[in-house]
Each structure stands twice: as C-alpha cells, then as structure tokens.
C-alpha cells in the first residue's frame, strides 16, 4: 500500500522540511563523490521534490510500474541528483547506489534514464521536452479511463526558454478534457542559468502571467515555503484545466556559499565546499529534528 495515499500517516509540514534537508545532504554527498553534476539546480528543487515524493504523489516504491500511480517527470533533467535522492530514500534502489552517480557501469546517469533507473518515468535532459512528454502521459491516462491520476512535471526557467514548452502549454489546454487537465507544471524559477541570471541572458519575465495567458490555472508561490508548496500542489488535484505553479526559488538553496550566487551551475563542490555544506545542512537537520520532536510532544499533550 503506497504510504502517501493515507492522509492519516502523511507527513506534516515540519517533517517534509526535514526530508528536504535529508535530500539536500544526499545531493551534496553524491556530487562530492561524482565530482560532476548540477548541485545548485538540485538544491533549489529540494523542497518541491520532498513535498511531491513524501506527500503528494501517489506511488508505490515496491511496485514502480503500479498502473494507478501518479507520474513525476523531471523536465529539468540536469537536477537528476535530487530525483535520485528521493527515489533512493523511498527504496526504489539501494541508497548506496547514489555513490555511483555519473560513473561508468552504474545505473545513475548524468540525466535521468528510464531504461536504467527504477522509478524514472521517462528519460529527460534536453530542456523543453518534459512538458510535452507529460502531456502524452496524461492523454494516455484518459484513454485508459483512469480516475484522478495526475502528472507532475518539474521544469526550470531554462525549460521555459525553449519554444517547445509553449507548444506543450498550448496543447495541454486544447486537450484539457482529453487528459491535459491532469497536468501540474511546477516551475523551479531560480533565476540563474549557465551564462548568468535569466534576466541577463534571456528574461522570461512574468512566468505566472505567461501560463495564465496560455489558459492555465496559474499561481506563484515561494518555492521554499513548504506549506505553500503542499497547498498549491494539493489544490491542483481534480482541476478541469492544466495547472502551473511558479515557484520562486534560490539556486543552491540551503548552502550559504552557493545560495543565489552565479557561477555554480554544472560545477561540483570542491571537497572543502562539500564539507562546509554538509556541516551546514547537518546543523539544519539537527534543529529541524529538535523542532519536530517539540511539535510531536506538543501534539501528544
């Protein structure tokens, strides 16, 4: 029985925040060992991914091909480490596999590969394709007559610079009653890309307004406010139109030396940076654990 289906046992906001920190530490460790990959792009999405995998998504790690599961598509495939961390923490594959990231002979590829890694629904990595792929999945769900099954597509600001994303946005509305309504697009709008800020390189401006203009239900939230993320994600279930959640985020979130700073895209942490980042995240984890215990004790009385 998928744990996330039971509202009684669904983790609360504080616990989700703790899991986000766990996933962040996993990412730092993976990248420090791999010496390659996109750490800051993974960290900006950690809160969103934690909310999805620990609460919102209906999935069953014991049965990755469960027909009734929701689907998660990582359109920003370069943030693969955060997806791998979430999958490993749920038992789709052993945690130890995370240390094989980007290594020859291991299954964790630089970008998600559905043919190699359990739990990866579709291969991504070339920006702009994920929303279209997600729409195809959503259309198939309607053809199969499934009830209340959704597709969550996590996109980057770079994804939204690709024209194909807007072809998909148009088609999702056109096909809303044939499956498009099942789509939730989540934009991890961290405002930093390889060559600079999005404002410098190619300003995409009002992302929420753009999705709204394409006919989507569209909201903008703080992508590090766990309660807001959960509320926004849960509000999209049962919608009659595709829904976009534009998350204002900070690249490198949770690691002070990286957060919101240009120059880390696609660059792994040095050993010193990794140690510093892990100390910072573990301190955060300890305070979150303490807070969670206080909350639980409070609930008991």
């Amino acid at each position: 029985m998928p744990s996330t289906l039971d509202p009684e046992s669904a983790p609360g906001i504080a616990e989700l925040g703790l899991w986000a920190t766990v996933l962040r530490t996993d990412c730092v460790r993976m990248l420090a060992v791999a010496k390659s990959g996109h750490l800051d792009s993974s960290l900006s999405a950690a809160d969103i991914v934690a909310a999805l995998f620990y609460r919102v998504l209906r999935h069953d790690p014991k049965d990755p091909s469960w027909a009734d599961r929701d689907r998660f598509v990582l359109s920003k495939g370069h943030a693969a480490p955060i997806l791998y961390a979430a999958l490993a923490r749920h038992g789709y594959f052993p945690l130890a596999d995370l240390m094989g990231l980007r290594k020859i002979g291991e299954h964790l590829q630089g970008h998600p590969d559905m043919g190699r890694t359990p739990g990866v629904e579709v291969s991504t990595g070339s920006l702009g394709q994920g929303l279209s792929m997600s729409l195809g999945v959503a259309l198939a769900m309607d053809l199969d007559g499934r009830e209340d099954q959704r597709v969550y597509c996590l996109m980057s600001d770079g994804d939204c610079q690709e024209g194909q994303s807007w072809e998909a946005a148009t088609a999702a509305c056109h096909f809303a009653d044939r499956g498009g309504r099942r789509l939730t697009a989540i934009v991890d709008y961290n405002h930093l890309q390889t060559d600079g800020t999005t404002e410098q390189v190619m300003d995409i401006g009002d992302m929420r307004g753009k999705f709204a203009a394409f006919g989507w239900d569209s909201v903008e939230i703080d992508g590090h406010d766990m309660a807001a993320i959960v509320d926004a994600l849960e509000a999209t279930r049962g919608a009659d139109r595709p829904a976009a959640i534009v998350c204002q985020t900070r690249k490198g979130r949770g690691v002070a030396s990286m957060e919101g700073r240009f120059g880390f895209h696609g660059k792994p942490p040095t050993p010193e940076q990794a140690v510093e980042a892990l100390e910072e995240l573990e301190a955060k984890l300890a305070s979150q654990m303490a807070e969670l215990q206080l909350t639980r004790r409070g609930e008991e009385h």
Binding site: V73, M114, E121, V122, Q129, G130, S132, M133, S134, L135, G136, V137, A138, L139, A140, Q164, A168, A171
Partner: peptide, 8 residues
Amino acid sequence: SIACGLAA
C-alpha cells in the same frame, strides 16, 4: 515528445 509520453 507527446508520442514518447503516450508510449511510455
């Protein structure tokens, strides 16, 4: 890409 999603 939609065809990819349908086939998957």
